[in-house]
Amino acid sequence: MKDEEIIDHVLVPKHKILDKKEIETVCKKYGITVKDLPKILKDDPAVKMLGAKPGDVVSIERISSTSGISVYYRTVI
């Protein structure tokens, strides 16, 4: 599938690369290090087009039936 098709797909939530400050606030909020976050592969189609490198943190805006929009974080490995 093409990149636009993947972005537009109903099953694919919005992915975004966090900058250093945002990573810090996330880690502080949950009291963890980047290593403790769930993982996402670097050749995952949704991440590949963002151009994320291993070590980056990606925020995922999930549309949740129980909490409206919930933000999830994953480290690229």
């Binding site: 599938m1 993947i6 694919v12 995952d44 189609p45």
Partner: peptide, 25 residues
Amino acid sequence: DTSRLCSNNMFEIAEVLGIEAARNT
């Protein structure tokens, strides 16, 4: 309509659309 195309094969979805889409599936 590629934006609503879905399959019940999670591994295929993970390969084509990524792990988050696979989770949703």
